[in-house]
Every structure is written in C-alpha cells, then in structure tokens.
C-alpha cells in the first residue's frame, strides 16, 4: 500500500530480528533439534529419530515422571485460575468503583510482591510456614486454630497447593492491573445508561462490565497458562530440583531441569532434556493455539 523502500523496512526490522534470531530463536531451535539425537558415553551425539520421545511417553521409567509432572502442572495452573484470577478480578472491580479512597495506594501496595525476586519470596514463605519458627502456628493460635497447623510444605497432600498459593500471592498484581485497566476503559455512558434504567451495581457488573472485559480475561488466562507451564524458580528455590516430597511438587520446569542438567550423581542428558523441552513447547503451543482459534476469534477485539 504505502510506497516505501525495502531498505527502510529492513532498517526498522533488522536490530530486533538480529538479536532475537541469534540469542533466542537459534539456540532454541538448536535445542529442539537435539531432541532427535542421543548421547553416548564419550559425549558424542548420534541421530536417534523419535527414540527419546518414545522413551519419554511410553517407557514407565521416564513416562511416570513426565506424566506426574504434567498432572502437577495442570493442577498448578487450575489453582491459579481458580484463586489468582478471581481474586484479581475482585480486587480490580473494587478498585475501579467510583470514589474509592486510597485506590492508588492500594494499587501500589498490592502490586509490590510482583516486583520481588522469587528467591526472596520462596525464602520468606518458608520461614513463615516453618514448624520450628512457629510464625504461622502462632498466628493460627490467635484465632484459635492452632491445632490445624501442619507442615504444609512438607506434606505430599498439601505441598503443591501451598506453593501454588505462594505463587498466587506474588503474581496477583498482574491480572489485577490488566483487568483494572480494562474496567476503567469502559465508556462511562454505557454504565450511566444502565444506572438510569435502575440496574443495581451488582447487575451492572455481571451483565455489562464483565461481558465487556471478556477479551482481557482471555488474555489473562493465556498469560497465566504460558507462565505456569514455564514455571520453575519458585519450586526450585523452595523444594530443590527433586521437587519433593515424593515428587509431589514436580512440574515440567523442574522435570526438564533434572533431565537436562542432571542432579547430584544423576548425569544430565542434553538430548533427553531437549526432548522434554520440545514436549513443553508443544503443550504451550497447544494452549496458545486453542486461545487464538477458539477463544479470541469469538470475542470481539477490545483494546486493553
């Protein structure tokens, strides 16, 4: 359409393409390609076709761990969807009400944990929940629930849930801000019109505001999905690469780490690790694909 010289387009694109291609895309493709090789004792790599994938998906020694990590990861994601995003929505809805005092201060403070390093977050929560230090226990005691205290991070049944909630605690600010931005973008006239017709605040929220921010909720969902299936740092810094107890907190990120780099005397395999990486990529791709083709197409586009 626009008459523009090719070299001009090239100049706009070149820096980004160059840096991205050499320091991200190429290394990633190199890794994905490695998944089709195996390594011998001397460290030489030989083409092995789909052998690694076969092992990973069908050999119980590998597949048990893989599917366990996959299942945990799905659980991790659902906890975020059920806790993080509804709370984020609630906070955003309250903040976007007219004339809430201190709204700016609340926003500032609620977003704060997001900025902190996972290393710090993991350590702080470990201290708080530590049975030896007793902070969580004495807090529960003050409301008469001391006997309900458990070493949640150490129990198979509760460790993953606890870690997911810590992650929710840290990242709540992101969905909150995105949804808040979408809510305040709704034209005032639309709401005013409904109010004139006598709709309650409750109805205005459910029938007018919520449908209008659906595209943003879609975006939040897909960002949560990609983030959760790439997660690693928190679990690694709290539970280590073995993601105990009994692998109950193992997710794809930690499973990949152990496979790729090894752990203690377990020797890492770059080729097998690459196969895990490829499967992670496919999982994320599937999710993003569903989002683009099923969800986003239906929702009318709305700037967030």
């Amino acid at each position: 359409m626009n008459r523009i010289a090719r070299w001009q387009i090239a100049i706009f694109l070149a820096p980004a393409l160059l840096i991205y291609a050499s320091f991200s895309a190429w290394p990633l493709l190199d890794t994905l390609g490695l998944g089709f090789f195996n390594t011998d004792e001397a460290g030489q790599q030989h083409f092995a076709g789909l052998a690694n994938y076969y092992k990973l998906l069908l050999d119980p020694q590998w597949s048990d761990g893989f599917w366990n990590a996959m299942g945990n990861n799905v659980e991790f994601f659902f906890i975020h969807m059920l806790v993080q995003n509804p709370i984020g929505l609630l906070l955003a809805a309250l903040l976007s009400l007219k004339g809430v005092r201190f709204a700016k201060s609340y926003q500032t403070l609620l977003f704060l944990p997001t900025l902190l390093s996972v290393v710090i977050i993991g350590f702080i929560w470990q201290l708080i929940l530590s049975p030896l230090w007793g902070v969580a226990e004495s807090l529960l005691a003050q409301v008469g629930l001391a006997e309900h205290f458990q070493p949640w991070l150490g129990e198979e049944g509760s460790a993953l849930l606890t870690l997911a909630l810590i992650s929710v605690w840290q990242f709540i600010g992101i969905p909150m801000m995105l949804i808040y931005a979408a809510l305040i973008a709704i034209p005032e006239e639309v709401i005013e019109a409904a109010r004139v017709e006598g709709a309650s605040a409750w109805r205005i929220f459910w029938q007018i505001r919520l449908p209008l921010i659906l595209p943003t909720l879609g975006l939040v969902t897909i960002l949560t999905y990609v983030g959760n299936f790439n997660a690693f740092d928190l679990i690694y810094s709290v539970k280590g690469a073995l993601a105990g107890p009994n692998y109950s907190t193992d997710i794809l990120g930690t499973y990949f780490y152990r496979t790729f780099f090894g752990y203690q005397s377990q020797i890492g395999s770059p080729t097998m690790g690459a196969a895990v990486a490829t499967l992670m990529f496919l999982v994320i791709l599937a999710g993003v694909g569903v989002y683009f083709f099923a969800v986003q197409r239906r929702l009318q586009r709305h700037a967030f």
């Binding site: 470990q126 929940l129 530590s130 049975p131 030896l132 458990q150 070493p151 949640w152 991070l153 150490g154 129990e155 107890p245």
Partner: peptide, 16 residues
C-alpha cells in the same frame, strides 16, 4: 523427630 519434620530443612536441623 521434631514436630513438622517433613518441612524441616537441613539448616533448620542445624539450628535445632
């Protein structure tokens, strides 16, 4: 073992 030992780290053990 101490109460809640399933969440007790090596550093906790040393402290204890």
């Amino acid at each position: 073992l101490a109460k809640g030992y399933s969440a007790q780290t090596y550093a906790d053990t040393q402290n204890l």
